[in-house]
């Protein structure tokens, strides 16, 4: 697979995952706030702000991944969110909290967090790192040889 195709495929996967994650939270910010509360990690005063802004940040970052000029920046934002989410889930699995993730659904019913969710997130982190490294390399190539990047 050519590098550019691999980067596009990786971006498409991340974008699809983050759009699917953002939409239910945007539709039900009150339920998402409760899901954040149940993780028992965010300061109480910040729970609603996180419930308001995180889903939109996920959606904007997912769409920006598909724009070559914004791709590297979006990959940084997505990588940062994935690291924070994974750390939160891993900590709560470690301390035995039996809660839903609040990742793709804001319902309090459904699959509970576990090491499988942590492993899935680590896979997404690997994809985000790949996108970041390749995007940065492609940007550097364009800077080194602007003529090459403008060639058809």
């Amino acid at each position: 697979m050519k590098p550019r195709v691999a980067v596009w495929a990786a971006c498409a996967i991340l974008a699809a995952v983050f759009i699917a994650a953002a939409l239910p939270k945007i539709a039900h910010p009150d339920a998402f706030a409760l899901a954040i509360y149940r993780h028992h990690l965010a300061p109480p005063g910040l729970i609603n702000a996180l419930a308001i802004y995180l889903p939109w940040l996920e959606l904007v970052a997912a769409i920006a991944l598909l724009a070559p000029r914004l791709r590297a920046g979006a990959a940084w934002v997505i990588l940062l969110m994935l690291v924070l989410f994974t750390a939160a889930v891993a900590y709560n699995v470690h301390r035995g909290l039996d809660i839903t993730c609040g990742c793709f659904s804001v319902s309090s019913e459904g699959p509970r967090i576990g090491w499988r969710k942590v492993a899935e997130n680590l896979g997404l982190i690997a994809i985000a790192v790949f996108v970041l490294l390749r995007s940065t390399a492609l940007d550097a190539t364009r800077v080194m040889s602007p003529a090459a990047s403008s060639a058809p």
């Binding site: 889903p55 939109w56 904007v60 920006a64 000029r69 914004l70 920046g73 934002v77 995007s135």
Partner: peptide
Amino acid sequence: MRRSASGAAVVLLTGLLVGTAANL
């Protein structure tokens, strides 16, 4: 690197603006 930082800033600011507007 500068392009990454500006891209990330655009994403963060857009997310903040749209989130604020949506919750209004």
